[in-house]
Design a protein around this nucleic acid. Sequence first.
DNA 1: CCAAAAGTGTTCCCACTACACCCATGT
DNA 2: ACATGGGTGTAGTGGGAACACTTTTGG
Lengths: 272, 272
Amino acid sequence: MRLLYTINFFMNSPEELVDFIQHGHQRYLPHLSIDCVVFGYHDQQLKILLLRYHGQENWNLPGGYVEWQEGLTAAAHRILSEKTQLVNLFLQQFYTFGDSPIRLNRIDIQNNHNKAFAKANVAITEQHWLSNRTLSVGYYALVDYQEVTITPEYLVDDYAWVDINEVPPLSYDHNEILDKALLTLRSQLYQQSIGLNLLPEKFTLPEIHSLYEAILGKQFDRRNFRKKMLALGVIRQLDERRKIGPHRSPFLYVFDLENSNKVLEAGAGVAL
Amino acid sequence: MRLLYTINFFMNSPEELVDFIQHGHQRYLPHLSIDCVVFGYHDQQLKILLLRYHGQENWNLPGGYVEWQEGLTAAAHRILSEKTQLVNLFLQQFYTFGDSPIRLNRIDIQNNHNKAFAKANVAITEQHWLSNRTLSVGYYALVDYQEVTITPEYLVDDYAWVDINEVPPLSYDHNEILDKALLTLRSQLYQQSIGLNLLPEKFTLPEIHSLYEAILGKQFDRRNFRKKMLALGVIRQLDERRKIGPHRSPFLYVFDLENSNKVLEAGAGVAL
DNA sequence: CCAAAAGTGTTCCCACTACACCCATGT
DNA sequence: ACATGGGTGTAGTGGGAACACTTTTGG
């Protein structure tokens, strides 16, 4: 059962924004952020969620800061729920970024922030906490595309789901973060119950088939794919069908959680 | 060719220690550390390097802080070279730890530090930079056990190579870090040229066979193991043998770097 | 000659691949 | 009836697992 809550937002008024800029250093750890690569699936395409902040040209991954007394994983969940209203997401840490030039040199960051935060009428100086060098912990999330309701924050001018094959240049090193997330997702595809979070509870074989093709960027034989998924025991066929218009009704399947967990334990897990 | 350099040390005098405690916050990013799990192989056992700091009962993983203008990967290499004198190590980031109680609550840390730094005669207050909440980025390293020369820092009372099956309770959440490192190592064993860094340049089949058994904690059939390694193309048999006393002389093998790289590119890489 | 360790080949089975025709449904 | 998409089985192949005897060497 997936639970959907409506949660409290983050910065949805000019006052909250100014408070964030002026007092954020009292609330958040400096030098550390979290960036989330949110994968969604729709229309046979694998997409990611991008945000564009006020005054910036480039798109960004949704991200945020860690509170002083907050666990890292908890922070990732909070940040994501602030952007998507989804909780109980599948969320996986995959790498911490601290090498690219943008993460060593703070000039561009200061510049960017000044544009983004122009709405607040508060200048971000070189000494300001937001101008600090910041390392970023990358998490990827998997969401059921149709259940996500994006409620942009005050600072977010625009958001978009974009196909992973048509991702524009992003701010900072976010393209690099995305690339690594995608690599990780692909390598973990058969070890984690990936589809569980990208598909509705009941789905058809063609649906999960297309999903795997979209994620891995290649094609699979229908018959062999079904055999493999059943042999691995990650999905189970139901005795129901779905009506899909003027065509034969496909069977419905569900993820077999008991078996999936066994598969997970067997495959040692971690990758790079 | 592996290169061994002697590098500059870190804290090898009371003066440097006091300087570190008093002025470290000017040199290092706060709230962030790096911990390294150094795997070494000897006597058919997989071991890790542990340090014990002055005044502490428990053992620690070698670790350190990131300089303000230093890349994260560079910091990991620097920290490790300060402890082992080895450079050009295989070093792999595997997870960032920020959830366990010790990483949320700074009391114990302050307490520990006061014992450890007693040598310096400088009290670590609750406001001191070393008492801050600290997240840690985990790296694991693989070293050729016989080439490592440990030169303990001033603060390090003792060091030890301990079998991974006999690891005592460590400080902070270091046992958790070790567990995750080991999981990662195991899952990446056939994708990375792991053995390259744990064995001498030329090695016998029984040697690499025992290494794999030690890492994975289970046994493999000699004949099948050889077939698999040769089929994967990661090792190549030489026309030399090694004298090993009153027994048949085993052939020597080397890693086939050309082929290993191909294998690496093929296998998507990342895991967690 | 003996003890200890290394070298080597075959069989079996399962998992993955390739491949094409029939069925169901709504218009 | 037909167009569209879904469902299904078989044969071949290659890689992994199981398995035991012979050879080398120094003492």
